[in-house]
Design a protein around this nucleic acid. Structure first.
Length: 426
DNA sequence: TCTGGGGTCCTAGGACCC
DNA sequence: TCTGGGGTCCTAGGACCC
């Protein structure tokens, strides 16, 4: 049988690149994008990487340095990035229908059966097309498994002379590339496993490839075994074209400031429940369990730490925001303790089932009239909010002044998703 | 002052059953 | 005196990903 061929396409510094598309003057200038609540640095342009600012660090630790170096700072603007991502993915799908959208800025494409001689050319074509039509630069890596394609992509991105494309198919290319990849940079090896492997003398991808996969399973787990096999060109992880249905839906945020008042936390919990219920209905699901959690700041050196969660099962799986808010508030009352300064709360919907009419059984009777009323209400709320904007219609429990809302001080306009924030051309 | 948010999978161990 | 063994299901915790 012929080998499989996977490509990994990854947008370069994706969030920074999105900001640059609408602000061309930022080209060649250092740019960072912050996480929600302006907490951490989650995207860096090449110029920022060159300054030595690491990924994922708290913003405040580098704020002075960033000002001194005149780095342009953005709060995250997920409506913008989500929309740009969709445009990129639509273009990628025209190269092969076998595509797995792996994250907001990455996709695996299956090129099994394509002629090896043509791949390099296809890679360049992908790069040029995406850049021309969206303004986003991407890197393309080809290889025999997903794990190897990740590595090929990394090389394509790092070694500028390759022009953003790297084909890692034959033995020579692998032998040259794998020793350059540190253990911790292999897909599936994280911050706990990397030091363990290094202690065993396994310093890079080439070393890990040479290990006996059965022995590695015994020492670690089946996940490690798969990684070793994938490094050897044996594909164990398939492309998932259709996204599997979600097993849980989670919404949570840190507060913009410390909060101790019950009423404010209740509003935030109601707000999260509303968002989660919206996602639930969008995906055609019902929830069989709702869990609420609250926590104080685990990093605080002065405030006492407390965290807790509580789950409640509705009588029947539900998608009704009002019912879910009631359950959420009951759960919150079980865990809220006076006297703590809370930092974050959230809601998890799980026990998800497809939204089909509940089977009428003798013991589990739903009221069809009530059910119909709820169905209609949810439909109208979703339609109004879709047409006129998020939270046009909302539940009283969400509150009006929302003093707990997250910080977002440097957000760019939603150029592509809000009419009133369209870019003006003089 | 200030440290994101949203997910998945695997394993170990306890409860329970026959 | 002496208390099995195999199987399933569930949950918590740990690891990973972007």
């Amino acid at each position: 049988m012929d080998n499989k061929i996977f490509a990994l396409i990854d947008c370069n510094n994706f969030y920074c690149s999105c900001e640059r598309v609408f602000n061309p003057s930022l080209k060649n200038k250092p740019v960072v994008v912050l996480s929600n609540n302006d907490g951490c640095i989650v995207a860096r342009s090449d110029e920022v990487k060159a300054l030595g600012i690491p990924m994922g660090v708290p913003f405040h630790e580098y704020e002075t340095f960033i000002k001194k170096e005149k780095v342009v700072v953005f709060s995250s603007n997920y409506s913008l990035y989500g929309d740009m991502s969709k445009r990129v993915m639509d273009i990628l799908s025209t190269f092969t229908p076998a595509i797995e959208i792996y994250s907001i800025d990455e996709a695996f494409l299956d090129f099994t059966g394509f002629k090896k001689e043509n791949l390099e050319e296809i890679g360049r074509d992908i790069r040029e097309t995406v850049l021309k039509w969206t303004g986003i630069p991407v890197s393309v890596g080809f290889s025999l498994t997903k794990t190897l394609a990740k590595i090929a992509n990394r090389i394509a991105k790092k070694e500028k002379q390759r022009g953003g494309v790297f084909l890692m198919i034959d033995e020579n290319a692998m032998n040259e590339a794998l020793p350059k990849i540190a253990t911790g940079d292999i897909w599936g090896i994280g911050r706990k496993l990397a030091p363990k492997l290094e202690n065993m003398g396994i310093k890079n991808a080439f070393d890990l490839k040479k290990q006996d996969s059965h022995a590695m399973r015994r020492i670690f787990s089946v996940v490690m075994q798969r990684t070793v096999m994938e490094l050897n060109g044996i594909s164990c992880i398939e492309i998932e074209e259709a996204a599997p249905t979600k097993k849980q839906i989670l919404t949570s945020r840190s507060f913009g400031k410390k909060i101790s008042e019950y009423k404010e936390i209740e509003q935030a919990v109601a707000w999260h429940t509303t968002r989660a219920a919206e996602k639930l209905r969008q995906q055609g699901l019902r929830a069989g369990l709702i869990i609420v959690f609250i926590t104080t700041n685990p990093f605080s050196k002065v405030d006492a730490f407390y965290q807790n969660s509580f789950g409640i099962t509705p009588e029947n799986p539900t998608k009704d925001t009002g019912e879910l808010i009631n359950l959420a508030i009951n759960a919150l009352k079980k865990i809220y303790k006076k006297g703590y300064f809370y930092h974050k709360c959230g809601v998890i919907l799980t026990g998800l089932t497809l939204d089909v009419p509940a089977p009428a059984t003798l013991f589990n009777e739903t009221d069809p009239v009530k059910e119909k009323k709820s169905e209609d209400l949810m439909l109208s709320i979703d339609n109004i909010n879709k047409k006129l904007g998020k939270s046009t219609v909302k539940y009283a429990a969400e509150g009006l002044n929302q003093s707990w809302k997250m910080r977002s001080t440097q957000k760019s306009p939603c150029y592509t998703t809000k009419w009133e924030e369209l870019k003006r051309v003089r």
